[in-house]
């Protein structure tokens, strides 16, 4: 018996088809979930979906949407949570449950929380196996909960990454950090990424898209300088 290796185009096609099948299977439960207004048109959370992020602020921004609309949120495995920043982005702390150190039982904790809250933000302590992720995804679909995975996660519905950051207000030896412009990128399967520039937060601590006339691409950042001494 021989296994023919798939060429990249076909495997991409397969992945796309797989996603389509999943989308159809999860059909009726995939109701839209309230998303942060700053992300409208860029990313719409759906019940039962898994969303990957790579930074604390992006994770908190995703969690803030449902929380602002009155939902409960669970945060699992995040020991270094900036509570005040979370509040700035709109997370309602009185409806937030934090499990800072679930250790090796983090998957059970996420599953238990997914039964009762509408959004779970998890930072897995190690690599996640395909099987575990699939079982959890089935549970999420059944319960209509959203999972925001901070870090590597096999097969996300969409992945939100902070592609560029520029802080304003800080100079050489004076000023202070006042506002931050970020370029957010949303990748969904093999489709080309969509991006948007956001104040995260603006000088008045609001989170909103950068107005059209102000849009200047945040320059690509150079690599950190390595010094050999």
């Amino acid at each position: 018996m021989s296994v023919t290796s798939l060429d990249p185009v076909r495997s991409e096609l397969l992945a796309e088809l797989q996603q389509k099948v999943e989308r159809i299977q999860s059909g009726p439960t995939a109701e839209p979930v309230a998303t942060h207004p700053a992300l409208s048109g860029l990313l719409q959370l759906r019940a039962g979906g898994v969303y990957g992020v790579d930074a604390a602020s992006a994770a908190l921004l995703l969690a803030a949407g449902p929380s602002l609309a009155g939902a409960w949120c669970g945060i699992v495995g995040v020991q270094d949570l900036g509570v005040e920043a979370a509040q700035t982005y709109g997370l309602q702390l009185e409806r937030t449950i934090v499990v800072p150190e679930p250790r090796e039982r983090w998957l059970e904790v996420v599953a238990a929380l997914a039964d009762v809250v509408d959004l779970v933000l998890v930072r897995p302590p190690g690599p996640v196996r395909q099987g575990e992720a699939a079982r959890l995804a089935a549970r999420l679909r059944k319960r209509g909960a959203v999972l925001v995975a901070w870090g590597e996660w096999p097969r996300c519905d969409a992945r939100l990454t902070v592609a560029g950051t520029r802080w304003e207000g800080l100079e050489q030896g004076h000023g202070r950090l006042k506002a931050r412009r970020v370029r957010l990128e949303v990748r969904r399967g093999a489709a080309p990424p969509r991006e948007r520039e956001l104040w995260l937060p603006a000088a008045d601590l609001a989170v909103r898209p950068v107005e059209a006339e102000q849009v200047r691409r945040v320059e690509a950042v150079p690599d950190p300088v390595r010094v050999v001494s």
Partner: peptide, 27 residues
Amino acid sequence: GADEQVERGVARVQSLVGHDGVVAPSV
């Protein structure tokens, strides 16, 4: 009936990670 259910869910998580393992954040 969210809050009652949330309390029950938290009780289940507490049985997994211990009573002190679940916290409520505030500023």
